[in-house]
Design a binder for these strands. Structure first.
Ligand SMILES: [Mn+2]
Ligand SMILES: [Mn+2]
Ligand SMILES: [Mn+2]
Ligand SMILES: [Mn+2]
Lengths: 120, 120
DNA sequence: TAGATAAATTAGCCGTGTCTAACTTTTGAA
DNA sequence: TTCAAAAGTTAGACACGGCTAATTTATCTA
């Protein structure tokens, strides 16, 4: 959970300037109270900073985690695409797969990606 | 959860002749009461048949699900191995990845597997 | 600037999956 | 054949992630 949240929060801050619960709820297909509760957990975990009724900010730890997650996400998607999978499926599957890919496997994906690029 | 359980139950029946809660608990690194409760849910879902204090059997539906899961598991592991990932990591990662692989992606894995075999 | 609307929170519920402690049933050895 | 050890179950607790209904706060608009 935490990974998907910080990832989305980072993206919202980048694209919208701020991360709002209502956006998060829409993106995850979840109701606002669920977001409120989960954001509290993120705050308790030191990943997020925020005051009630205000936008959500990432802590340093949160930003670091977000960056790692976004990188992993990009690699997994790119890898699936390189296998000829359509974009929609690649995105959907990557959203789950990304949470189970070890460093070893991620590196193997990157390596395979390079091969497929050189081999056209 | 159900997928991992029926998969393991099928394997235990095949290798040991029967599936016992104590073995399931060990394999999943979980305590026996957890297994009891989860097996009850499997029974409620019509995947498993059993009487208290006796071994666990799969229903037809359970057996079908188990077969599908084992097939997916084998393909994901084989695919990761074909990328040069070590067996331990491949098994560990596959255990999570298998639950997020769509039919489309599974087919892409199979296809890539064939390519890697022909290309030696 | 008042009032309506939108956004967010709180309270309380539920199902899942985990645990420990205590109990019951089965089993296997003496 | 008995009875101790192993296996399994029950009871009760907890954290997580989801929900609805009701309330509170912020925002926009007339
Ligand atoms: Mn994800
Ligand atoms: Mn992601
Ligand atoms: Mn699994
Ligand atoms: Mn598996």
């Amino acid at each position: 959970m935490a990974e998907d949240y910080v990832e989305l929060i980072a993206e919202l801050i980048e694209s919208r300037g701020e991360a709002r619960p209502v956006e998060i709820a829409e993106r995850f297909g979840v109701k606002p109270p669920t977001v409120t509760k989960n954001i509290s957990r993120l705050k308790a975990a030191g990943l997020v900073r925020r005051e009630p009724y205000r936008a959500i900010f990432l802590t340093d730890a949160g930003r670091e985690l977000a960056e790692a997650c976004r990188r992993r996400h990009r690699i997994v998607v790119a890898f699936l695409l390189s296998l000829g999978i359509d974009e929609e499926t690649a995105e959907r599957d990557a959203e789950g797969i990304e949470h189970h890919v070890s460093t070893t496997t991620l590196e193997a994906f990157e390596h395979a990606l390079l091969q497929s690029q050189s081999g056209k």
